[in-house]
Amino acid sequence: MSAALEAKLGQAWKKPPFITNPVFRWVLIGGSILYFVVALGGIEVSWDRIVKGMDYGKRFITAFGGIFVALFDYIRDVFPWLSETFPRFFGPPTGNDPSDSRWIEIWTEKEIIKGLYESIVMTVASTVVGIAISIPIALGAAGNIAPMPIYLFCRAVIALSRALNEIIVAIILVAILGFGPLAGFITLSFATIGFLAKLLAEDIENMNKQQAEAVKSTGSSWGQWINFGVQPQVMPRLIGLSMYRLDINFRESAVLGLVGAGGIGATLNTAFDRYEFDTVAAILLTIIIIVMILEYLSGVIRGRVQ
């Protein structure tokens, strides 16, 4: 038996701590607990208001469930073949006229369609413009192909776009341009730059150097080099990121209306103010469905191009 072993036998074993300095470790643990307690204790809770609000909560959940069922019935009534093909899932048709559905009623009367339409329009336009601006900025922000002054400028644009919250940009733009979708459109285009140009620039920086150099060595011009050496390498990712951003822009467009920058958010805000939970539920359900469709589509397209 070796001496080292003899020294260890009978000794308790403890896992060596993640942070080796004991003072620092205990200050960190103690500080975290203290902050947690103080921060949590500092939150004011008005139980009277919550008890009252529970009623609203119940109404919202009932409304959400109700509108979900109404949508389900509507789909079954519009597409009778679903009941025939999947009888266990859809059950027998109700036999009602689909145009009398409660879902349709809520959906059409409260300007939901107009708001949604505006949201979609803002999403499409801002995504296209955002991509168009992001590409040159991404090229400029890629350290391996851009000269220093351009690099710094493009990186600054990206940093600014990322640091400013969409809602805050929208507030400023509404103050300048007035209410309406133009403010929302510019906000989303600007936000797209920070996202797309940053990730695309990183992708360009990580591309295969040999491929790009091979094209350069043929004596091509700068434009040809980008077109043949760089573009094919980053194209799949550009398409994937653009689809992802389309999805994000739609979600964001749903809240810009809260500050007057167009889209479904204004309708939603009004509905909340008036405690019209049927309308709220219909809007939220619609948003969730559209987001799910977009997510599915972007998954399919990303799968195709990669």
Partner: peptide, 27 residues
Amino acid sequence: VSTRSVNSLIWALLLVSIVGPGVLAGL
């Protein structure tokens, strides 16, 4: 999916109407 698709501002709107305005709704 459902918690992710809805923006935090919308969650906040909903919770303000349920628990009342204030930090709790935001949290």
